[in-house]
């Protein structure tokens, strides 16, 4: 029973699109919305989530035989909280600016439903290989989701892409009379509206491809 689930490869691919944490499962939207106004913040956040997710999936998968059913949530929470603390300290030591920018949203990874859901659904039931691939796939999916929102918001809001790290300007700064930055995209409303519209676009694409597949089959 314990190894009947999807294979590692299926787990990996599932995480990226069919079960994308942001667009499909709609889990962990708090950081998705809060840190997605620059690419740097989004990538750092995705990195921190990936670290915590992979580490806790590995640990939970290794000790899955020892878990008592009624204590498992407690063990998951303890594991996640410890890894989040470690990630938080590392950011504060080596990427202090990012740590200041992300502020409370790093510790809020503890209550991010993605991680506890993956521990519950996959890592506590499957072998190490599947658990690792699942964690990598889900983190990649989360990163792609965050980056898609952050791209829209940073380009429209600041006119840059990776502005703080690479200094790329997408919209030339020289023509404020033609295009001025959409301040609203940097602010909270921009986050909600961007995510809502992107979610609509994703659903639309999926509906179309499903229809196309049906037409081919028929």
């Amino acid at each position: 029973m314990s190894n009947d689930g999807p294979t590692p490869l299926e787990r990996f691919i599932n995480g990226i699109l069919p079960e994308n944490p942001v667009y499909r499962q709609i889990l962990g939207i708090c950081p998705t919305l809060a840190v997605s106004n620059t690419m740097e913040g989004a990538l750092t956040m995705a990195g921190a989530v990936a670290f915590v997710l992979i580490c806790s999936n590995i640990l939970v998968s290794l000790i899955r035989g020892l878990l008592k059913p009624h204590l498992r949530i407690l063990v998951f929470t303890l594991t996640i909280a410890a890894f989040v603390t470690i990630a938080d300290r590392f950011l504060a030591a080596y990427m202090y600016d990012m740590s200041k920018l992300l502020g409370p949203y790093i510790p809020l990874i503890i209550v991010n439903c993605i991680i506890i859901a993956r521990c519950e659904i996959c890592a506590s039931k499957q072998r190490l290989g599947a658990a690792v691939m699942d964690a990598v796939g889900q983190s990649l999916g989360f990163m792609l989701g965050l980056m898609s929102i952050a791209s829209v918001r940073e380009i429209l809001g600041f006119g840059t892409w990776f502005g703080k790290w690479l200094g790329w300007r997408v919209i030339p700064a020289a023509a404020p009379e033609i295009w001025s930055n959409w301040v609203i995209m940097i602010l909270p409303p921009g986050a909600f509206i961007t995510l809502g519209l992107l979610m609509g676009v994703m659903n639309w694409i999926e509906a179309r491809s499903r229809k196309a597949r049906k037409a081919v089959a028929a």
């Binding site: 609203i184 909270p188 909600f192 994703m202 659903n203 639309w204």
Partner: peptide, 21 residues
């Protein structure tokens, strides 16, 4: 149709957030 459910909820949340600003 594509916006039904979470999509439209998020857009409304955006408008509400604009109002709260």
């Amino acid at each position: 149709k594509p916006l039904q459910g979470p999509g439209i909820t998020l857009i409304i949340a955006g408008i509400l957030s604009l109002a709260f600003m």
